[in-house]
Amino acid sequence: MKAFGIGCLWFGSKCIENEGDVERFDPEEHLAAIQKSLEAIPNLSDLKIDRPENLSIAVSFEAADDDDEIFPVIPNVQIKFKLYLPKRIQDQIFKYRESLTDSEHFEVLIKYGYRAAVAFISYSASVPPTSPADCVVVVRKYLEQQVNKNNKTVDFRTLGPSPFHVDFLFEAAHDGESIDRFRFVDSSRPGTGYGDITVEYNRDRFSSIDAAWVAFTNEMNEQIENYYVAVQCRNAVMSCTYEVEEHLNSLLKLQMDSGLVAFLSRFWKAPSKTRDLMISLLEAERHKLTSTRFLDECRRDGLIKEGSPFSAHTVRRIAEQNDRLPVGQIGEVVRLFEERHLKKLEGGVVLVAGVLGGAVGAIVTLFLGR
């Protein structure tokens, strides 16, 4: 059997700092730089980079962290290699606990689609390991250390969750006639952390476990890629949600403060803060519409598969975040703030007009009295 974990790992370029640099990006030079970086890594062997004849950039992939870096995705590129990581190194990577992969030899396969890159990290096992997903952690962190160390061109990056929160096994089904090619057997227990899923293949359809593995990674790659696109959509909505919360808290603080200074602050600052809140709400709504449209496209193209854990997680990631931000209710709060400010503004105008009218009347009376 094989044990494996899944993640979103890819090689970015440190030469890209803004969208203008993407247009000048050379995929040939980037792949050459990736190869050079990997060949310099100790314990890495059997490196192979499969690529189409004509290279292109499909999309500028944005990372999930705060630096807003842009990373190119080069479609249909496949990077394969083997990595030997002694138990001692694995335990150093985890720091606070030991590694539970039960192996020191890993096979890494990174497949670039059109929107994201998917990594399958696997190894042979005679019995089910304690935690196959740990292999993603040790490989990811080791490559981060090795690739990003003193490298001026290539940047190894990750989009979480990496690992995908499931410990996977891959083996032949005992009742092969009852399945077509592959099936998922979910033995997860609620409340125990990562899920446990065994992928069974029909031994009559494949000459070996390696042949079945190649077919499985090819078939599942797009589903997993869509899951990580859904993660990007969720992250975009989540970022807007945090901004909305910050602006809303700032507005509430303005309303709760008392005194003359607070009154003047409300009068002058409330409009701009309300505008910022509205902009964040509109951005969130835009990202929610993008998420919903993406999900509809997946359904239309038949990429939401019944019984697939990747499809189930894709739907869940988008649904959970889209339901979290009550745009309509917060919009009502914004409307109330604006109405309140307009009333204060109208009252201020009337007061100023009254004061000015009285002053003008007094001046005219004084002038006529002379």
Rank of each mutant, 00 (worst) to 15 (best):
L277I: 01
R300F: 05
I16F: 09
W268E: 08
L100W: 09
S291I: 05
N202F: 10
A117Y: 05
L100R: 13
A212P: 05
T314A: 09
W268H: 08
Q35F: 00
P42K: 12
F164Y: 15
Q35L: 02
S272K: 10
L55E: 04
L31K: 04
L289V: 11
P42T: 09
H174E: 15
H287K: 09
A125N: 06
Q78F: 03
L9Q: 09
E297S: 10
S250I: 00
L295P: 07
Q90M: 10
G328F: 11
G20D: 14
S45D: 07
C8I: 01
S56G: 03
S207N: 11
D180Y: 11
L55D: 06
E283W: 03
S250T: 14
W268G: 00
L55Y: 08
L47H: 06
E243P: 00
K48H: 12
A58H: 06
E306V: 11
K2W: 13
V229K: 13
V199P: 03
G328S: 14
K288F: 01
R316E: 15
V139D: 05
V244S: 07
L277D: 00
V231I: 12
R205H: 08
P42N: 12
R286F: 13
L85F: 03
I89N: 07
R97Q: 13
D167K: 04
A236L: 11
Y228I: 06
Q145N: 14
T101Y: 04
P132K: 01
P52F: 03
L356R: 06
G354N: 12
K111S: 10
D175C: 04
E320F: 02
E98P: 06
N43R: 14
E243V: 02
L169V: 02
D323I: 03
E338M: 12
C233Y: 13
N221Q: 15
L143R: 01
G7S: 12
E339F: 04
S178K: 15
V231S: 09
T274W: 01
Y123A: 03
L251F: 03
L281S: 04
P42Y: 01
F25A: 08
V77Y: 05
E297R: 11
L44M: 09
E29F: 08
C15P: 00
K14F: 08
S162H: 02
G369T: 11
K343V: 08
N235P: 00
S239K: 15
